[in-house]
C-alpha cells in the first residue's frame, strides 16, 4: 500500500542514526532522500557528519519504522506511573546500613 508522503518515483525517505563516539548509542539525527540504502548512507555522511559528528551511521527506510501513536500514550505509558516500587528510592533503609 502507498503511505502518506511515500514517494512513487523510486526515491524514498531514510531515517539517519549516528554513533558519535565508541561507547555511545546510535542516535536519530534526521532524514535524507535516496534511491537505496547505500545512497542514503552516502548522503547521510555528507549531510550529518561534516564535522566529525560520528564514527558510524545506520540508515533505515522511514516506511519500515512502526511508531506508537501519541493518542495511545496513556494506554501505553500510564500503567508505569503508579509503580513507584520499581525505583530504588521507594525503599526506606536505615542510615546506619552502608553500601546498599
Amino acid at each position: 500500500m502507498e503511505h502518506e508522503g511515500e514517494r512513487t518515483d523510486g526515491w524514498a525517505l531514510y531515517e539517519i542514526f549516528i554513533r558519535a563516539r565508541a561507547g555511545l548509542d546510535h542516535k536519530h539525527v534526521g532524514s535524507v532522500h535516496a534511491t537505496d540504502a547505500r545512497m542514503a548512507l552516502e548522503h547521510a555522511r555528507d549531510v550529518y557528519t561534516r564535522r566529525q559528528e560520528g564514527i558510524s551511521i545506520w540508515v533505515v527506510r522511514s516506511a519500515d519504522i512502526l511508531a506508537s501513536d501519541p493518542a495511545d500514550a496513556d494506554a501505553l505509558f500510564e500503567p508505569a506511573r503508579d509503580k513507584v516500587y520499581r525505583h530504588p528510592t521507594f525503599y526506606d533503609i536505615p542510615d546506619e546500613v552502608k553500601t546498599l
Binding site: G5, E6, L13, E15, S31, R61, S62, A67, D69
Partner: peptide
C-alpha cells in the same frame, strides 16, 4: 526527522 513515513503501519488515524 520523524518523518511522515512513520505512519507506515498503514493504520487509520485515531478517530
Amino acid at each position: 526527522m520523524y518523518t511522515q513515513g512513520l505512519d507506515a503501519a498503514g493504520r487509520e488515524p485515531a478517530p
